[in-house]
């Protein structure tokens, strides 16, 4: 990227959840949702966060915006350490960091008009001039490809794709610098998904936005992200430029994940490595490299010693004792 300092710097972030109760047979358990996660996001780029369910990608997204408080580590937004900030000190920064959710309908009060729902964010941040707000809302609707008269409608009058546009408009209302989008298109049909992906790309260009794009669909991430971070059981196993990571994966998990994606092409079915089993429980992660229990090339060292996320000789940032060489193919 550039020499400018990153917009977002994440250092050694950890987050635990307590699950179960003392009465449950398993007793109270500590789930390590995030374990020593570090990365940067540069202004104007899109970082894709990918991984399977339970890998911690959504928890990470919420920690970035202080919707969850981290248990350890630091998050610097524009140079400010937001991890220890009071809610009051954080407030002006909140406008710069917004979130788009998978299901915007769940967060839209069904009995209020879209215009009122969108105006809430403006009013909450001190913009109370009704006429100015009205103009701003009309402008927002134009930005996300809806008509100004949609402001007078209720959430149930919109299709899934339109609701996601409303969710995006709400995130844009305060002119944010950073948008964390958590699975923004996974609930949408393919033909609508493409529209929303294109919209996000257009908005990024016009408004100089920075995205953290969380998704389980590698193909969508490949399309929208400049860089990709692959997560497994609360850790980042590989991070790098999208083309590098997805075309020549260095981590065996990345390679397996890619080979598992069914391509919409009956002729493209190559020999594939199918991972056995399912990710272990984050309440009881394996020792050493967390992937070693499912890794097709695991060695004894992998069970004992945890690999750090570091740049290897080939310039790839990967957490693996035996990263794959060029070609990214598993045996």
């Amino acid at each position: 990227m550039s020499d400018a300092p990153p917009l977002l710097q994440v250092r050694n972030l950890t987050k635990h959840f307590n699950v179960g109760s003392r009465f449950a047979s398993g007793g109270r358990q500590v789930v390590q949702a995030l374990d020593d996660v570090s990365f940067d996001v540069f202004a104007g780029e899109t970082l894709g966060l990918v991984g399977e369910s339970g890998c911690g990608k959504s928890t990470l997204g919420r920690c970035l915006l202080r919707l969850y408080d981290a248990d350890g580590g630091r998050i610097l937004f524009n140079g400010h350490d937001i991890t220890a900030m009071t809610e009051r000190a954080l407030r002006p920064l909140r406008a710069d960091m917004q979130m788009v959710f998978q299901d915007p309908y769940a967060s839209l009060n069904p009995r209020r008009r879209i215009g009122d729902l969108l105006a809430e964010a403006l009013i909450a941040h001190g913009q109370t001039d009704a006429a100015a707000n009205r103009a701003r809302l009309a402008e927002l609707m134009g930005l996300v490809g809806l008509a100004p008269d949609h402001l007078d409608r209720f959430p149930h009058e919109f299709s899934g794709g339109q609701r996601q546009r409303i969710g995006i408009a709400r995130a844009l209302a305060l002119n944010p610098k950073l948008i964390v989008a958590d699975e923004p298109v996974s609930a949408l049909d393919v033909s609508i998904q493409a529209q929303v992906v294109n919209l996000l790309a257009d908005l990024q260009e016009r408004l100089a936005l920075t995205y953290v794009f969380i998704a389980h669909d590698l193909s969508v991430v490949r399309h929208i992200a400049d860089r990709v971070a692959v997560m497994y059981l609360g850790t980042i196993v590989e991070i790098g430029a999208t083309d590098d990571v997805l075309h020549e994966p260095a981590h065996p998990y990345t390679a397996a994940l890619i080979s598992a994606v069914p391509e919409p092409d009956p002729l493209a079915q190559t020999a594939r490595t199918i991972l056995q089993g399912e990710p272990p429980s984050p309440a009881n992660p394996p020792s050493g490299c967390r992937f070693h229990t499912r890794c097709p090339i695991a060695q004894p060292r992998c069970a004992g010693e945890r690999p750090n996320l570091s740049a290897d000789a080939a310039g790839r940032t990967v957490a693996c004792h035996f990263p794959l060489t060029a070609g990214g193919r598993l045996p």
Binding site: S191, I192, A194, R222, D243
Partner: peptide
């Protein structure tokens, strides 16, 4: 055409179908 692909050239824009079902 609207499905993003994991292999092959990366398109600048996905050819979306306008409107909704």
């Amino acid at each position: 055409g609207a499905i993003p692909r994991l292999r092959g050239p990366r398109l600048v824009r996905l050819p979306a179908i306008p409107g909704a079902p």
